[in-house]
């Protein structure tokens, strides 16, 4: 077994080290899911940060032969509480990740099908709060940031 060591720095500058074990026989997707679950932080962005990638092309790639960092991957995180309908979940995301990652993660976390996910958007604070620009970075939030994943009201046109 190998170890993926993550040093999580909170928005309040607190630091916590988490070790996630993995084997060469596993895939990137398995590791991403394990980081999400064991470290409570967005696994995809964390693995991308460790490997210095902008995006993972093949989730099913095996971990054997991946140039893995020997030292801990240090990441700054923000705590986000996402509300969807009657549920809510808290998770950590990298401060430099885009809000689009929160949207993607939330659809998976709340089991929203991909064809329904594309009709949703993030709003700040409440279902009718200001829309969040998903192209922008999450940024630093000293306290837990509350967002809602909602379907915006329909805009009429000649067909409806």
């Amino acid at each position: 077994m190998s170890e993926f060591i993550i040093e999580l720095i909170g928005s309040d500058d607190s630091a916590k080290e988490i070790t996630v074990p993995f084997s060469d026989a596993e895939t990137l997707q398995t590791l991403i899911d394990r980081v999400d679950e064991q470290a409570g932080v967005d696994g995809r962005s964390t693995v991308e940060a460790a490997l210095g990638l902008d995006g993972i092309v093949d989730d099913n790639r095996g971990l054997a032969g991946v140039a893995w960092p020997r030292e801990a991957t240090r990441i700054r995180t923000a705590l986000i509480e996402v509300h969807f309908e009657t549920e809510h979940k808290r998770h950590r995301f990298l401060e430099h990740s885009k809000w689009a990652r929160v949207h993607q993660w939330s659809c998976k976390a709340f089991s929203v099908a991909s064809d329904a996910c594309v009709h949703l958007e993030l709003r700040e604070g409440s279902p009718k709060g200001p829309p969040i620009n998903e192209r922008q970075e999450i940024g630093r939030h000293p306290e837990c940031k509350i967002v809602w994943l909602v379907k915006p009201g329909p805009e009429p046109n000649g067909r409806r």
């Binding site: 064809d115 958007e121 915006p152």
Partner: peptide, 12 residues
């Protein structure tokens, strides 16, 4: 806001 919704919500 109408234009924003059309251009940023992918399902549109």
């Amino acid at each position: 806001e109408f234009l924003r919704t059309c251009l940023t919500v992918r399902g549109n």
